[in-house]
Design a protein around this nucleic acid. Structure first.
Length: 120
RNA sequence: GGUGCAAGCCGACCUGUCGCCCAGCAACUAUUGCAGGGAGGAAAGUCCGGGCAACAUAGAGCACCAUACUUCCUAACGGGAAGGGGCCUUCCUGGCGACGGAAAGGUUACAGACAGUGCCACAGAAAAUAUACCGCCCCGACCCCGAUUUUUCGGAGCCGGGGUAAGGGUGAAAAGGUGGGGUAAGAGCCCACCGGCCUGAUGGCGACAUCAGGUGCAGGGCAAACCUUAUGGGUUGAAAGAUCAAAUAGGCCUCGGAUCAAGGGCUGCUCGUCCGAAUCUCCAUGCUUCAAGGCUGGAGAUAUCCGGGGUGGGUAGAUCGAUAGACCCCUACGUGAGGACAGGGCUAGAUAAAUGACAGGUACCUCCGAGCAUCCGGAUGCAUUCCGGCUAUAGGGCGCGGAGGUACAGAACCCGGCUUACAGGCUUGCACCUUUU
RNA sequence: CGGGGUGUAGCGCAGCCAGGUAGCGUACUUGCAUGGGGUGCAAGGGGUCGUGGGUUCAAAUCCCGCCACCCCGA
């Protein structure tokens, strides 16, 4: 099972990010706002993780939350890859004001991924 | 042994599984394997200084901003070190007193207030030109009282003229202070001392200190009020700046092909045919001009579409800038901040942004639980230890078990400082307390 | 990365440059007026001037350091 998370699976192109936020469809699942956009021309799913500076002020806590989200996605992305579908651009925006533990985040990420699958 | 202060240092560790960033070697090619490196003392706040880069730049002045005892450290600084002066506290000491001397500790943004302007509420006579209210004193007129025969003398009141700055509820601050002389009353009016100011000498690199002489002493505070003086500052910041550059559209040049031009005539319309302005380039045996250029004549091109080739700018993107440096350790030297020579050592480099997640264990801290010794006397030079006696609470000590916690905080071009945050621990020095010798 | 601003009564703001009394509107309390309410009138209470230092006789005001919030440029 593929549990790596190399750079090609991370969304880093400025143009694609702009397109995602302009055209993508979104839903809320606390503590995340998820935005996704089917994009058949790319090779793999590309994911963006965002934690607002206004919500979590301390840089150390902000980094920790981002790392936990990244880890949770890395360990659970097989749920998406099991379904043979169009590749997508996905953004996870953390909207809570206080940081969560890893277990809680992992449960929420699984719910988010299932909802993305059922949506299509 | 404990407490406090100051300085310096550390600021969790180990194992396993999975994962991220960088660069190396090998296979061999877009992956794999092997070994390696991967946050801080403040990376923070962005308060100063510098490197670096681009642009600007005759010289001087003005404006604006910053700094402000001296000397030094430093690449530089508004940072730091040492020293000087002021102020405060404690203790000792001299003097009638004002006040002086000595020691220790703390603190200090500490140039200039006889360059100028401004402000000093309330209270107070007066807040800075003292020349002024009450008061004090002198002289003169009037009136009253007492002594006296009158003259005259003494006292009180009021008016006028003058002398004073001793005293005056105040206030943060009151016009040099204390003691004495002096005077009608007073006053640096005079004297002594204290404090100022000026000049000189000596010591010190200097801030300044000490001594000597002179001067009766033109006079408060605020420049973190404006200001003056001196010194410094070109502007903008790595999203600075440099290089390469896909696709698409468009610009320019060129080649090939096709259609063929504004306007007018022939015509009812299309096709066809004829005339043909303007602009640019080239040529000339022409004319004009010193020349440039202009005029004249001739030749060619112009617009649209399609296709091919070339080229400049530049977007996405990529690379450099960008990680070895005013670096660290160790010294000689220096009171210290610092700091050579020689030697040794270290090196994060991402870019929608890496350095992590989970599990187990160890260390430290806090709390809880039960347990052990605790006190007194004797033996020994003391501690340890041994023996005997008494047991109730609280506290601390020791190991055991359980629970919880492990600070402040995340590089973004790089350095030097400053400021702020920080669980706990270690080392050194100083001060105080206690125990033993 | 760089630049600027704000913090004063429950709320919205003056006062700060030029230091000496903290004030305005609204809200609150009480009284009057009304049969009652609203409105109106009168009186009153309520402030560590964000925080810690410094200058000064005296600081909301001047200077320095922190904290919180907001805005702007790229």
């Amino acid at each position: 099972m593929d549990v790596k998370f190399p750079k090609t699976e991370r969304l880093h192109s400025r143009k694609l990010i702009k397109e995602l936020f302009e055209k993508g469809s979104s839903f809320f699942l606390y503590p995340f706002k998820v935005i996704c956009l089917p994009y058949p021309s790319i090779e793999t799913n590309q994911v963006l993780i965002s934690v607002s500076k206004k919500k979590i002020r301390k840089a150390v806590c902000r980094n920790l939350v981002k790392r936990r989200i990244k880890e949770a996605y890395r360990l659970n992305k097989h749920l998406l890859q099991a379904n043979k579908q169009d590749k997508q651009l996905i953004a996870f925006v953390y909207v809570s004001s206080d940081s969560m533990g890893f277990d809680e985040i992992q449960i929420k990420i699984r719910k988010c991924l299932n909802r993305i699958i059922n949506k299509k």
